[in-house]
C-alpha cells in the first residue's frame, strides 16, 4: 500500500510517500531529514501528536495557565486528554516547566506548565 502525507515535523511541510504493508513500513520518500522518516513511520503504526492546552489556576494572575504534553501522545487519546485536563486545577504560583499531571492517562507522558503564573 502507498500513502501520501504532509510531514508536520517542521514548518517546511515535506510531501512524503510511504509504502507499507499492514503496520510494516517498507519505504519513506520525499522527506528532507530524519525527522520526516520517523514521522511517516509512527504515522502509519501509531499516530501521535503533542497536545497543548490550558488548566485552571487558583489564586494566580490569570484564570488559566498554558500546558503541554512533554512528549507526543497517541492521537486517538487527544479528546480524552482534553476532558481530563479540563478537570485539573493547580494552585499559584506555577513555574514554567512544573509538572502539572504525571503520566497522563497511562501514556507515560507528563503534562508540564509552559508559562509562569
Amino acid at each position: 500500500m502507498k500513502k501520501q502525507m504532509t510531514c508536520i515535523a517542521c514548518p517546511l511541510g515535506c510531501q512524503l510517500t510511504v509504502e507499507y504493508e499492514g503496520t510494516e513500513v517498507l519505504s519513506v520518500t520525499g522527506n528532507t531529514c530524519k525527522r520526516g522518516d520517523a514521522y511517516a513511520r509512527t504515522e502509519i503504526v501509531n499516530p501521535t501528536r503533542s497536545l497543548t492546552s490550558t488548566v485552571r489556576v487558583k489564586g494566580g494572575v490569570h484564570p488559566v495557565v498554558p500546558v503541554k504534553t512533554a512528549g507526543p501522545i497517541p492521537k486517538d487519546k487527544m479528546f480524552e486528554a482534553m476532558r481530563y485536563l479540563n478537570t485539573v486545577a493547580v494552585k499559584a504560583p506555577v513555574s514554567l516547566g512544573q509538572v502539572i499531571v504525571e503520566d497522563l492517562l497511562g501514556t507515560g507522558v507528563n503534562v508540564v506548565a509552559t508559562n509562569t503564573d
Binding site: 497543548t52 490550558t54 498554558p66 503541554k68
Partner: peptide, 19 residues
C-alpha cells in the same frame, strides 16, 4: 500562542509561544 512550533530554527527545538 500556547501551541508549539516556535524556535525550531533559532533554538533547534520546538517551543510554545510563552516558552
Amino acid at each position: 500562542c500556547i501551541h508549539t512550533g516556535f524556535g525550531l530554527h533559532y533554538f533547534g527545538e520546538e517551543l510554545s509561544g510563552p516558552e
